[in-house]
Every structure is written in structure tokens, then in C-alpha cells.
Design a protein around this nucleic acid. Sequence first.
DNA 1: CACCAGGCAAGCC
DNA 2: GGCTTGCATGGT
Length: 284
Amino acid sequence: MEAEERGGSVFVTGVRHFAPSHTFDCGQCFRWDAERDGSYTGVAYGRVVNVSVQGGTVEIKNTNAADFNKIWKKYFDFCQNYDIIKNSLSHDEVVARAMACGWGIRILRQDLWETLVSFILSANNNIRRIKGIIGRLCEMYGQPLNYAGKTCYTFPSCGGLSGITAVDLAPLRAGYRAGYIVDAVNSFPHLDLETIRSGPLDKARRELMRVRGVGPKVADCILLFGAGRTDAFPVDVWIKRVMDESYGGFCNNREAERFAEERFGAYAGYAQQYLFYYRRGSSV
DNA sequence: CACCAGGCAAGCC
DNA sequence: GGCTTGCATGGT
């Protein structure tokens, strides 16, 4: 993997195991949209970029070498060796099939706060509507960014939302989840980030579950997508379904999760995303 | 009109 | 501890 800045873009050569459609439409993120040419435009870490792949070369438009090294290299999980990850997971027949289907999925290393809010909004909701709510939240409280003749908005920081009420959030049409967002704004500054990022998995999960609206599944999504905890294995209805079909029935989500975390270990989160995409399909 | 959507909290036992 | 119920909103 090598990166070169040229003409307002960064070109990353020698990239394998990356298909933007698999990565952005597999339900892990809510702020990337497909363009007519097949590229994807999205906002993360206060920047807007456009991403496309041609023959093993990734082009990230509207960025530079400094931002690539500081943000995008890690965000796109370029530091991980997917040959090793996939080799390890391919010993499982079911995941091997899932990887053949969603071969271009990479786990995005998203911002913790953004992931916390996003997955609180995901509960008992559908992906299209989640994206709508988050988009309106960013329009109302984020900073504007101009790119390609359009205005995008950053995801608002926790501090930037301090003092908001559920009434303020009514235009989001987030329903009962508006109160959870208010609680998240108030409690996030008191969370033990060290435990979340590098403590034992169950302890990290319990720390996140101090926020109202965060249960076991949402906590695992935050750990996997927002804290780099690739050992986490979120179990939702689709994962439960595919695991029941493939490994025999599990009496509840917790049993399915323990089975997967033991079976897939440090790569459980990767296995989860391939399985989700395989069973659920594209989220768009 | 039902039923569902990347579940969760509260209220029971 | 485990199990049941209600839940804002929008789409089918």
C-alpha cells in the first residue's frame, strides 16, 4: 500500500479487498452516498471526500497527504492486512461463503461520538430513515462544507450539542429516541473512554450501556465501528437469523454472541459484517 | 388496516 | 436473573 498526492486527490495503490459499494452499503455507516459514476461521497472527521476504486488504486478526492496519513489511512482500515484476516476466517465455511459475497467490505474506523449517536438512532428503525435523521441532525447542528457544488454538513460534536432538549430535536423526527440523544450529550463526557477503547470487552460494553438507549446490540456496534474493537460481535435480527440457519438454533442473542466471539476471536467483528451483508444484502 | 425496521426500557415474576 | 410489552415514525 502506497499513497501519493496529486491534483487535490490522494491515490492509494496496491489496495485489495475494497469495494466501496460493499463497504458503504453494509449498514456500518450512515453518511456515505453513491454518485452516478459509482463513486461515493461522504463526511467523516470534519472532512468531505469522494472515493472510487479502479484496478487496485483507490482515489480519495478533495484531500491531501497530511489528511490521508492523519485520518483516512486508519479510517479505511488500510493498516490491517485483510489477507491474514480473511485467511483466518475462511476456515469457517459459512463466513467463507459470506466473504465471497461481500468481498470488498472493510471495517471503517469511525468517530466514537458519532457512532454512539448513530446507533442509538438505529434501534427499532430502518437504515433509510436512520440516514435521514442523522442527515437532519448534521444540517441543524453541524458545520457546512462545500464540495462539488454542494453543501455537506459535519457531524456535530458532543460539546456542540450541549444544552439541547428533546423539544429542540423534534424536527429530526427521531421519535422517542430524541430523549436518548439528550442523555447521550449529557453523559458522554463522563464515560471512561480508556475502558471503552481497551478494557475487557464486557466491561467496555457495560460502560457504554450507562447511556440510555444503549443496550447490548447497540453497545457492540459502537465498540466495533466507533472504538476499533474488532473482537465485538453485534447480534441483531439478521445475524441471529443467519446463525440459527447455519450453526443450529441459539436460545437467545447472548448465546449466539458468545459462540461467535469464541469461534472468531479477535476477528469476530469482521466476520459479523460479512455475515450481515451476506444475509441482509445491500442496505440501500 | 396490519406489520416491520441493525432494540431498548420499564414493569413484571 | 428471564420474559413481556409499549414505543415515535415512516414505509409497504
